[in-house]
């Protein structure tokens, strides 16, 4: 009996102490207390997009003027070409098209990413508006790449509502290209259909 009373007293004391030593705030409002602003990659990509797309467009070189095996991690390129085949995967979330650039005679295949999900970090790696050092860590740096990709989808690709009907048409494309083996992957920055 005595032991139980002591136990209850200790328990009550703990509860009283702990409930006195707690700060209760509304969920998600930590920033107001800590002064730390959560990183929002889309805010960066939103404000940077105009500069980045202008930079890539002005730096873009014609695809026939460069050695494609030296594309590496990414280069800004542009060309006029014919769409061969439109492919839609993952329930329309991974659309791509294969293209043949005008005047190209090599054996590389050209695939253009059409979203809404884009692989890789080509846009981020080609641009020079923001550097890795502008961010706190590599997580933010990779979030920035993703945010740029969704920004380009919103600004460039989605408004065109591309579907199978694009096959056979001629396009003007500017974008960031990467190469792996014989495959060149292009993430578009400007795209017009003739």
């Amino acid at each position: 009996m005595k032991g139980k009373i002591i136990f209850v007293v200790i328990l009550v004391a703990i509860v009283a102490f702990v409930s006195n030593q707690v700060l209760i705030i509304d969920k998600g409002t930590e920033g107001q207390y800590t002064g730390v602003v959560a990183f929002d990659a889309s805010a960066h990509s939103g404000s940077d997009w105009e500069k980045i797309s202008a930079e890539i467009i002005s730096n873009a070189v014609d695809i026939n003027a460069i050695n494609l095996s030296e594309l590496g991690a990414g280069k800004a390129i542009k060309f006029k070409g014919t769409v061969n085949e439109f492919t839609s995967k993952a329930g329309g979330k991974r659309n791509t098209m294969t293209v043949t650039p005008e005047g190209y005679t090599g054996n590389m295949t050209f695939t253009v990413q059409l979203g809404s999900i884009y692989s890789g970090t080509a846009i981020r790696d080609v641009q020079t508006v923001k550097q890795f050092g502008d961010f706190t860590n590599q997580t933010e740096w990779s979030q920035y790449a993703k945010a740029l990709n969704s920004q380009l989808d919103k600004e460039v690709v989605a408004p065109l509502a591309i579907n199978e009907s694009i096959q056979g048409k001629t396009i003007n494309l500017t974008g960031a290209a990467t190469a792996s083996g014989n495959a060149v992957t292009i993430t578009p920055v400007a795209l017009t259909i003739e």
Binding site: V18, Q21, V22, L23, I24, I25, K27, G28, E30
Partner: peptide
């Protein structure tokens, strides 16, 4: 991260955390 229950988040002081963890 605090302790989130419903729409509220509870942040305990360090002494309270020590007591809770010992419990």
């Amino acid at each position: 991260e605090g302790l989130t229950i419903g729409a509220k988040t509870y942040y305990f002081t360090v002494p309270a955390i020590v007591v809770l963890m010992l419990c």
